[in-house]
């Protein structure tokens, strides 16, 4: 790990301002992904701004009937929150499908959104990776790509976004609230928060230098039957091969976002509209324009089956 200086932030705006002044600074909250990457010298901040002391750890009702989730609310606490369990069970389920008990006790809401890909070529510093070292190429394209993305990719990067939580938030139309270095606030729909790799896979979201996530706001509950169905190589404590977060209303209409297949939580409104017609119709719209590799084309068929299984789960519920 490279040496770094360390400070505790006093206020969100002060944290953002300090980070904007130092291009080598990073925020640290739970640290479960950042420290992992710092040990491997994939992340090399020269300065850490510890935001854990900021009062961003509350879950509060909004005047619109929704829920404002502080950036520092731990994954365990969010999954266990009474209102989330009752009104947004998809979010509880997605959180509980990720990581381990120990990690969920540390991992934060904002940090979960900002976690980096687990692409093995990103993690192995001896391999070419345009995300880790722009311009060096992508070892995954002609390499082992079974775990990687099938849609939303580019010829520079086929990494997936690893978050389970973000899949639920995408299906729930969450909004990411931030503070900028000048103290101004910004509200970004989660659909627009994560970016596709294009020719800049090192850029993963729309945050500007120094900008700090302060909370994530959920709109008022949409009801319906909700399910998060994750398929992985072992029964627990593994990243998704494919995951489906789905909400279906009594009349058969609904919405879904899928994980493990794209560089961001993947949702296509035209696919939502096909839900009453079943999994095959939904998958066709979800994966229009997909560019799978030989190793990961199975994910398209697998996703269709997980959608079918999720619909069956909801019919039984």
């Amino acid at each position: 790990m490279r040496p770094f200086s360390y400070e505790k932030a006093a206020t969100p705006a002060a944290a953002a301002s300090a980070a904007a002044k130092n291009p080598h600074a990073k925020f640290i909250a739970g640290g479960t992904n950042l420290l992992d990457l710092m040990k491997l010298e994939i992340e090399k901040p020269a300065h850490l701004i510890d935001v854990n002391g900021l009062a961003l750890d509350k879950v509060e009702a909004t005047p619109e009937g929704g829920l404002r989730i502080g950036a520092l609310v731990r994954n365990t606490d969010l999954a266990a929150h009474d209102k989330v369990r009752k009104d947004y069970p998809l979010l509880s389920r997605a959180l509980l499908a990720g990581a381990s008990g120990q990690l969920r006790n540390k991992a934060t809401t904002a940090g979960n959104l900002l976690q980096r890909t687990r692409c093995p070529y990103f993690y192995d510093t001896n391999q070419a990776c345009n995300k880790r070292a722009p311009g060096t190429g992508c070892g995954a394209l002609a390499g082992f790509s079974r775990q990687l993305a099938v849609i939303g990719t580019s010829n520079t990067c086929i990494a997936t976004h690893p978050s389970d939580m973000a899949i639920a938030m995408r299906a729930l139309d969450a909004v990411v609230d931030t503070v900028q270095p000048d103290g101004a606030q910004r509200h970004v729909a989660i659909a627009d928060f994560h970016t596709l790799p294009g020719d800049k896979p090192q850029v993963e979201n729309v945050l500007k230098p120094g900008e700090l996530i302060t909370s994530v706001t959920l709109p008022k509950p949409v009801g319906g039957a909700q399910v998060y169905h994750k398929v992985r190589d072992r029964a627990s404590y593994a990243f998704a091969l494919v995951s489906v977060g789905m909400i279906v209303q009594k009349d058969g209409t609904g919405r879904l976002a899928v994980g493990g297949v794209a560089p961001k939580p993947w949702r296509v409104e035209a696919a939502d509209a096909e839900l009453p017609r079943g999994a095959k119709a939904v998958a066709a719209k979800l994966f229009a324009g997909a560019k799978p590799t030989h190793d990961n084309e199975f994910k398209i068929a697998l996703t269709e089956r997980v959608i079918e299984a999720s619909l069956a789960d909801l019919r039984r519920a």
């Binding site: 490279r2 770094f4 200086s5 090399k44 020269a46 391999q127 070419a128 990776c129 070292a133 060096t136």
Partner: peptide, 10 residues
């Protein structure tokens, strides 16, 4: 591969 513009050595 490792030579990206990183933080200054300290």
């Amino acid at each position: 591969a490792k030579g990206q513009a990183g933080s200054p050595a300290e």
